[in-house]
Nucleic acid binder design. Structure first.
Lengths: 364, 364
DNA sequence: CCTCTTGCCGAAACCGGTTTCGGGATCTTT
DNA sequence: AAAGATCCCGAAACCGGTTTCGGCAAGAGG
């Protein structure tokens, strides 16, 4: 009966409505209110409804911090980014965060972001976040085939979802783009445009996505009865300069390739440099297809044909999957793979004659 | 005397040490332990020391969630990023996060990141984060001269620090780079290299940094006794295409400028396009100096001369400042400004003769 | 009609902290 | 030596929730 209820003076930030307010309003115990809202079975349907309506009406939302100290769950998803590494993920970050954060917010969850300079520090940070209950689980971006984060979280029984896949999928949930399918498709497209000598320039082989893309390339070749030529395949090209160097190696060969497939856009732009040096015109003398769909690729001239990944969507899906994982769903039921659309570009053209000559190239 | 203390079976995740463990160990009340650790004055020096030593020895760290429900503070700094806007901040994000997160982690704080599509939604998200106690305060990136976020947070008495400055600094803490000083310095450098007709291509004038950079440009002109020519100044060039269009306008004038200063690197790269069209060689017929120090600028050929901002450092400083602000320090004492180093590049060269002719330009 | 379930809710402990209140012991003061 | 002020700390309430336990009332079964 105290009159302390109405502390809300106009203008002053309204006090939160607590579970006690609700119980007082309804003439019911706090405990009963809590059980009614949390799906306990020992609550009558009518009471549950009254409680839910009142909660809705008063705008009650439980304070996660208070819940957390009992339940151990804080409704926040953790994301630890390894910096210091080559920052290939950098351009995706903003879109990815946007997707993850909005999906999380839709469920009343939040996103706790941390960074670390080394793989070991990543593990430490995750450990600390989970001990401090600042994260109920993690999204793991840029998965390695054999990823120490997976081993660590598995051992400590912390929920997680992969952005990408790993060699041993036991107990893993994930979202991934079908990069292998895309690269295989690229081989088909190039073949259809007359290309027969197609080179592949991959990324870091420790990343599992690279294994899948390389496999997709091989699959494409065998689909079409083309032979695998080791001289036309390499890996470890992540940035522009490395992509350029790889292209130089291929282009100076006697029977040079007429098309190159890159695993990542950043490296693919190196082909512009190598082609320029060799006097070849991209899209005419040499076709390039890549993967990522970066803005930089689209801005190149001619523009880079690529498979365009929607990182915002990935963030959304991963946040959803992780939340469901934390809530107890089995990891096997939480696996999604998504097609990647081809983004045409001027770097893709039909093969031009059998010769590697005419180095000055261009022809209107 | 129960033996439940030692739940720690080997391999199982060790239980957190709580304040109760500590009080039991010391034969002291929970309350006393708490007061001892939180700087209350009614604790004897000897007791305080005993408590601190024991806390250290047992590795006690209070659970922020539990503290939060009483104190209202959760030791986390909020960052709400507006997406949907032009994503000019995109490339900085990863470095900025790395700085902020590591500085926060060093103090036991965490970073809660959220995104929003519109300015209104930004306010809503901040409101919610602070009501849910998921953020004790905010870092505000990309400040407008008259920023609605500042008004909102000021009105609701929520701590914040600016990345950048605003027109009315009342009650504001901030970290900012001296962009105005940098642009002024650019004018001086160009003047020293013989340039007399220098154009300025600014960014969106609503952002306060743009006002400062424009002011720096004017200051530079007046330093050197050069006249301001409206025909050689414009704004609203944020991306490459806009930067190119602005350059075209300037270059087709009878007495074209020999140098251009851009407020942002992304726009500056448009000069490469415009110069190419006009048959001018960047760094010879036309010098370009810009601001940001992006990788894309460094990768251009010739490379873009620019003032290189260290966004990781900015993140660190801002996290520090915000934490101190939340702890109660006056905003006036929390203002930092930082010089920006010049990054030389091939786009900067001495002026070449008085003529705008010789359109084919290059000369070994 | 009596016992046995079952459904449903109140009472109270609990989570891990913080903060107020009051009082005993020691030290000053007169 | 008695009275008052100070120094410290224990006791207990509190924050906003969750969860266990037990019992009353109504329905089922014999």
């Amino acid at each position: 009966m105290t009159r302390q209820d109405k502390i809300n003076q106009s203008g002053v930030a309204a006090r939160r409505v607590t579970i006690a307010d609700l119980s007082r309003e309804l003439g019911i115990t706090k405990g009963t209110v809590s059980r009614a809202l949390n799906g306990y079975t020992d609550i009558s349907a009518s009471t549950r409804q009254r409680v839910e309506r009142a909660a809705e009406r008063l705008g009650y939302r439980p304070l996660t911090q208070a819940q957390a100290i009992r339940t151990g769950r804080s409704q926040s998803i953790g994301l630890v980014i390894e910096t210091g590494n080559h920052d290939a993920h950098r351009p995706f970050l903003a879109e990815f965060l946007a997707g993850a954060s909005s999906a999380a917010a839709a469920e009343g969850w939040t996103l706790t972001v941390s960074t670390a300079d080394t793989p070991d520090q990543v593990l430490q940070r995750m450990q600390q976040l989970v001990q401090d209950r600042k994260a109920d689980g993690f999204i793991l971006p840029r998965t390695l085939s054999d990823d120490p984060r997976v081993a660590h979280l598995r051992a400590h029984d912390v929920p997680f979802v992969l952005f990408g896949r790993v060699a041993d999928p036991t107990g893993c949930a994930w979202f991934d783009f079908k990069g292998g399918v895309a690269i295989r498709d690229a081989v088909h497209r190039l073949h259809a445009a007359g290309h027969r000598r197609i080179g592949y320039i991959g990324s870091t082989p420790e990343y599992h996505y690279e294994k899948l893309r390389l496999a997709g390339f091989r699959r494409g070749l065998s689909d079409l009865g083309l032979a695998e030529e080791p001289a036309l395949m390499c890996e470890n090209a992540v940035i522009r300069s490395q992509g350029a160097e790889a292209a130089r190696q291929f282009l100076c060969q006697p029977d040079r390739p007429t098309a190159l497939i890159y695993a990542v856009d950043d490296a693919a732009l190196g082909a512009w440099d190598a082609a320029h040096e060799a006097g070849l015109a991209i899209g005419h003398d040499l076709s390039i297809v890549s993967y990522d769909g970066t803005k930089e690729g689209a801005a190149a001239r001619p523009s880079l044909a690529s498979y365009a990944v929607d990182n915002r969507y990935a963030g959304e899906r991963l946040a959803h999957l992780l939340i469901r994982r934390v809530r107890g769903e089995a990891p096997e039921a939480l696996r999604e793979e998504c097609d990647v659309p081809f983004r045409p570009g001027g770097s893709f053209g039909p093969v031009r004659g059998p010769t590697g000559g005419n180095p000055s190239g261009r022809m209107p």
